[in-house]
Computed example of a mutant assay.
Amino acid sequence: MTEQQRAPLPHAFHPEVASFTVVSDDLAPGAVLDAAQVYAEGNTSPQLRWEGHPAGTKSFAVTCFDPDAPTGSGFWHWVVFDIPVSVTELPAGAGGGAFPGLPEGAVHVRNDYGSKEFGGAAPPAGDGPHRYVFTVYAVDTENLGPDADASPAVVGFHLRFHALGRAQLIGEYEVSADG
């Protein structure tokens, strides 16, 4: 997949908002995802830590999206929201299993695998590198509105109107044509 064939990043058509910083002990910007973040291997959400969110933030949401998935609409790997403003870090693995470190009240919706948890990278063999966009949203309300049965698109709709800021960390992963 050439750079010209790549889909735009997930916020290309959203209003501009303040930016802040997200970092990870498990993923450097632009680096290849670790086996722990691959669906068939570890399927573990990375540790994420953020700072510098805008004044007025009342909660956070975290998503992981692959805009390069060959679906015509990308692929949602993780969507969690209503994270209290006092929480500025999620440990590795917070997106699955017993959800260790995920704060009470946080809401997971189903990913495009159909489960309410983090689903790791699994691009088709030979499709080239896919980008995995981890986004932390600073939200202007404590409760975004949707419930756990909402689709990622509905959550994204609400985030478009309630995001005060966004922080992004992008990793890549690919599977060679010979698997």
Rank of each mutant, 00 (worst) to 15 (best):
Q47N: 13
A18I: 06
G145F: 08
G74Q: 10
P152F: 02
A167E: 00
A7Q: 12
F13S: 15
A150D: 11
Y173F: 15
V175D: 07
A12I: 08
G105E: 14
E89Y: 12
Q5V: 11
A106I: 04
V79P: 02
G96M: 08
G156T: 07
E104H: 10
H77V: 00
V62E: 03
F75I: 06
E41Y: 01
V87W: 06
A55H: 02
I83A: 10
A92S: 13
A7R: 13
E3A: 15
P152E: 05
V87H: 04
D66K: 04
C64W: 01
A94G: 08
T63M: 07
A150E: 05
R160H: 09
K116N: 05
A28H: 01
E3Q: 10
G171V: 03
G42R: 00
H158G: 00
L144G: 01
G97F: 01
P8R: 14
A163T: 11
F157S: 14
S59G: 09
P91I: 03
G145M: 07
G126V: 14
V17P: 03
E117K: 12
F157E: 15
H53Y: 12
V133D: 06
S151T: 15
D34W: 00
R131M: 09
A106K: 04
F20L: 07
A125E: 15
N111D: 15
G114Y: 03
V38P: 00
D149M: 03
A121M: 07
E104C: 06
F99I: 01
V62A: 06
F134G: 02
V109N: 01
L164I: 14
A28V: 02
R166K: 13
E142I: 05
S45R: 05
H108D: 03
G96S: 15
G74D: 11
M1L: 07
G120A: 05
F118L: 01
Q5S: 12
P100E: 09
A31L: 05
D147S: 15
G128M: 06
E16M: 06
S45M: 07
G179F: 11
L102Y: 02
D34N: 08
V85H: 02
F134Q: 11
H53M: 11
E16C: 03
H162R: 13
P146Q: 12
G95K: 03
A69T: 03
R160F: 03
S19L: 10
S73L: 06
Y137V: 11
D25L: 09
G93C: 08
L169C: 14
N43Y: 01
A121Y: 11
S151V: 08
E172S: 07
I83Y: 06
Q5A: 12
